[in-house]
């Protein structure tokens, strides 16, 4: 019997498709195994990279990913805090805050040192109007760097606002809502830190 005849048999179809499925799944299993470690490492590196963005270089020498604490927020949800240490000594904390922007939530990562001074602020994710509100991106302007070194007392709490509202932070032409939201969120982050300082340290 030649191949052409066998191919038309009803029994040939499940055999063929089953075999192909077997080979496919086996090769997938192998590929998954081969790439598992590399993928995990790449993802950890991603997170580490973004954490290190808000921390001055050489500020921490510990693995932030392995030194975390979860704290309850006012609304009951949990917030993950990464603790930074140098020579085993706690010297700062990195965490996410969220602001209510013009077109949706703005996710912000910020780092604060032991004295409650801002070490760095980066916007991770937002849906602000391109060309207007997206200047909060570090890639589109250095605006978020103006937070560096600020704390709850410097400037004074009532000056924690954009210039239009009598504060010290610039707004961008055509968009006030976005910077206003970021300022408010960062201020909230500072307040959160000062409230939970002891827990973070503990």
């Amino acid at each position: 019997m030649n191949l052409d005849k066998i191919r038309e048999k009803t029994g040939y179809q499940p055999l063929l498709l089953g075999l192909v499925a077997l080979l496919a799944s086996a090769s997938l299993a192998w590929a998954a195994h081969a790439t598992k470690d590399a993928i995990a490492a790449a993802e950890a590196k991603d997170l580490r990279d973004s954490l290190s963005q808000v921390l001055p270089p050489g500020f921490a020498d510990n693995d932030l990913l392995g030194d975390t604490i979860e704290l309850a927020q006012a609304d009951g949800s949990k917030r993950l805090i990464y603790r930074s240490r140098k020579a085993g000594q706690l010297n700062g904390a990195v965490f996410k805050v969220e602001g209510k922007g013009y077109a949706g939530p703005i996710q912000i990562l910020m780092a604060v040192d032991q004295e409650g001074r801002i070490l760095g602020v980066r916007v991770l994710k937002h849906t602000e109007t391109p060309g207007l509100g997206d200047k909060i991106d570090v890639g589109k302007g250095g605006w978020v760097k103006t937070f560096d070194g600020k704390s709850l007392d410097d400037p004074a709490p009532e000056q924690w606002a954009v210039k239009k509202d009598g504060g010290v932070f610039d707004q961008f032409a055509g968009a006030t809502i976005t910077p206003r939201a970021v300022v408010k969120a960062v201020k909230g982050g500072l307040e959160f830190f000062s409230q939970h300082k002891s827990e973070i340290e503990g």
Binding site: T129, P130, G131, L132, A173
Partner: peptide
């Protein structure tokens, strides 16, 4: 408006 939001909202 979508392409040039700045000059279009001044």
């Amino acid at each position: 408006l979508i392409s040039f939001p700045l000059p279009l909202t001044q």
